[in-house]
């Protein structure tokens, strides 16, 4: 710790202030504004200013709005699917690339690239590959499995959700693999030696030694992924536009539709606040984990 002096007090404030002012101005203002809006009735197409205080009406409306409830269900399904797939694939990749060899080191370098592809582009890329008649995934699957020949993936409610998840998993699983490889590398090797002496198989060592040892990393990574998945938006816009029907309309997408397409500002803000409550709980879990990890 550096020594204390009065001059230091000035330095601290001067160094902290610009960043904190920007961070809190760009979040506290919109949050306060949205909070106020969430109690207002305001249809932007009808008037330039809010039409008046409606109390908790917007919030009450949300609980009986079946499209909102649908978006909550869709978001939860999507989150479960994409988090599970990311974890399983990430672990699988980590195990397959764990050993040190020239080939594995080379492949590990490639693992960072999907992350650098923007979510919007991921969405377009997968939508393109899934197109009937000329999309490469559909062409290939159709020629291998004749019963899939006329499949229109993104017009099927379940498969549309599945492929949005895959586009997301494609970006994140490789990074999770990198994280897991790093964590696996720091397990002391004598634990494996001891397990081998006891006659444990590779499979048993994975479940009995590797997984428990990297559990802290898995938990942190999973929490981060859950928070990210709940906020899915970009690929919904570029892959399905919420369709077919409302099958892939996530919470964020529904709030977007309510606010920006149907310009129902008050209601949209109330929905955003309801969503914030859920995210706040998860963020709290994540941050407290982060701290435990550090200390």
């Amino acid at each position: 710790m550096l020594t204390n002096s009065r001059q230091q007090g000035f330095a601290k404030v001067a160094m902290l202030a610009p960043a904190l002012v920007i961070v809190f101005a760009t979040t506290v203002y919109p949050m306060a504004n949205a909070f106020w809006l969430s109690f207002q009735q305001w249809q932007l197409t009808k008037s330039q200013a809010p039409n008046g205080f409606v109390g908790l009406d917007n919030y009450i409306q949300a609980f009986s709005d079946r499209f909102f409830i649908n978006s909550v269900v869709v978001t939860i399904e999507y989150t479960l699917l994409s988090v599970a797939l990311t974890l399983v694939l990430g672990l699988g990749m980590a195990v397959s690339l764990q050993k040190r060899s020239f080939l594995n080191t080379l492949i590990r370098t490639f693992l960072i690239f999907p992350f650098a592809v923007s979510p919007a582009l991921k969405g377009y890329s997968f939508r393109f590959m899934l197109q009937p008649d000329y999309g490469v995934i559909q062409l290939t699957l159709g020629s291998w499995f004749p019963f899939l020949k006329d499949m229109v993936w993104l017009s099927d409610p379940w498969w549309a959700m599945f492929w949005i998840s895959i586009s997301e998993v494609w970006g994140w699983a490789p990074l999770y693999a990198l994280m897991f490889i790093g964590a696996m590398g720091s397990i002391p090797t004598d634990i494996f030696d001891a397990a081998k002496v006891d006659g444990a198989s590779n499979w048993k060592m994975f479940w009995g030694v590797t997984l428990p040892m990297i559990q802290p990393v898995i938990i942190i990574a999973t929490l981060l992924k859950i928070i990210g998945s709940l906020r899915i938006f970009d690929q919904v816009v570029t892959m399905t536009g919420g369709g077919p029907g409302r099958a892939t309309q996530s919470i964020n997408y529904y709030i977007y539709q309510t606010g920006f397409k149907f310009t129902n500002m008050g209601y949209s803000s109330a929905l955003a606040y309801l969503f914030l409550v859920v995210l706040a709980v998860l963020s709290y879990m994540y941050i407290s984990r982060l701290y435990r990890q550090e200390n």
């Binding site: 760009t26 919109p30 949205a34 809006l37 928070i227 955003a272 995210l279 963020s283 994540y286």
Partner: peptide, 14 residues
Amino acid sequence: LTTQFIPALMIALP
């Protein structure tokens, strides 16, 4: 750190 988890739509509208 918490400001990172505020939904984008909430920030965008105001």
